[in-house]
């Protein structure tokens, strides 16, 4: 465009450096591509799926449990077979991805933001704020995640929103505790003292200086939490408390196929399982690389 850009030495912004560092791992790039593809598939499911698996009128039990590649009575091909209701597995997986991904990512992000912020505040502010927050954390962690989620869903009833709410309630405390643990160590480091000596505003010290240093454990936890949220959702569905049966998530598709594993109808839970596995592994690959890249102390 202009002559001054000729030497192609771009100013190094943190974001460019981040991109550059991220691209160091081919696997992580692949992971990112897969995540993007899966996200697109999930978003576009209503337009690309051969069937609306949530519309009972489009299903026929006479097409139930057909193996992959079978033809429906209406002449449609079920590439990945059908489940017991005659639901096209491919469509079911595409729609299921929407729910599983939405529930998993959504709850992990909300819980991460809420939890980390509270954890940092607790570590930095100390005093009554810390007592209140950490007692809440203790209260939360006193209840096993699966049981709290079970109880909440038992009170509230099934539904995507309720599952997300339950997962956030269950997971925020983990971030808070981890953030606080990391921040307690960080707080005693010289740079915090230096920042305090400079009389920088407290929130600035907290979120600009301490937060980046506390991120590595939080990202490790966060990465695992996305997977865990999806798994937990699957488990809740398995126990009959997750999403409604007429709108299955990947977890519920697997749970539905669970009872057919021993009778050789592997595809009902196998393909959703693969979809789940690929999704989670891709997210984790991205998360892994993010952790390496975002960790200031590894940046040498």
């Amino acid at each position: 465009m202009s002559a001054t850009a000729l030497p192609k030495i771009r100013e190094e912004t943190p974001f460019r450096r981040f991109l550059h560092d991220y691209a160091q791992s081919k696997l992580a790039v692949l992971g990112l591509v897969v995540v993007i593809v899966i996200a697109l598939l999930a978003l576009l499911a209503p337009w690309i799926a051969p069937q609306n698996p949530y519309d009972l009128a489009q299903l026929d039990i006479m097409d139930g449990r057909l193996p992959p590649g079978a033809q429906s009575m209406g002449g449609m091909t079920y590439w990945l077979g059908t489940d017991d209701q005659g639901r096209d597995m491919l469509s079911g997986i595409l729609y299921g991805l929407r729910i599983s991904l939405g529930v998993g990512l959504g709850s992990a992000i909300i819980a991460g933001i809420v939890g980390s912020a509270l954890g940092l505040i607790a570590a930095y502010a100390g005093g009554w704020a810390e007592t209140v927050i950490m007692r809440l954390v203790d209260l939360q962690l006193s209840f096993p995640a699966i049981l709290v989620a079970l109880m909440i869903l038992a009170f509230l009833g099934k539904g995507v929103g309720n599952v997300m709410l339950a997962l956030v309630i269950v997971e925020w405390a983990r971030y808070a505790r981890t953030a606080r643990a990391a921040a307690l160590v960080e707080r005693r480091r010289e740079y915090v003292e230096a920042a305090e000596c400079l009389a920088l505003p407290r929130w600035r010290v907290l979120f600009r200086h301490m937060l980046p240093n506390c991120l590595p454990p939080l990202i490790v936890i966060g990465t695992i939490q996305v997977a865990r949220a999806i798994t937990l959702e699957a488990t809740l569905s398995f126990l009959g408390l997750g999403v409604p049966i007429t709108e299955p998530s990947l977890g519920l598709l697997i749970a539905n196929g669970y009872q057919y594993m021993l009778s050789g109808k592997y595809w009902i839970s196998f393909y959703p399982g693969i979809a789940l596995l690929v999704t989670i592994m891709a997210i984790n690959l991205v998360g892994d690389q993010l952790r390496d890249v975002l960790n200031p102390r590894l940046r040498r």
Binding site: I224, A227, R228, T231, A234, T235, F238, G251, I254, A255, Y258, S269, G273, L276, L277, I280, M281, N284, L285
Partner: peptide
């Protein structure tokens, strides 16, 4: 390790 926690435990 990624595989390890990717699969639902009941499965």
């Amino acid at each position: 390790s990624i595989l390890g926690f990717s699969l639902p435990s009941f499965w």
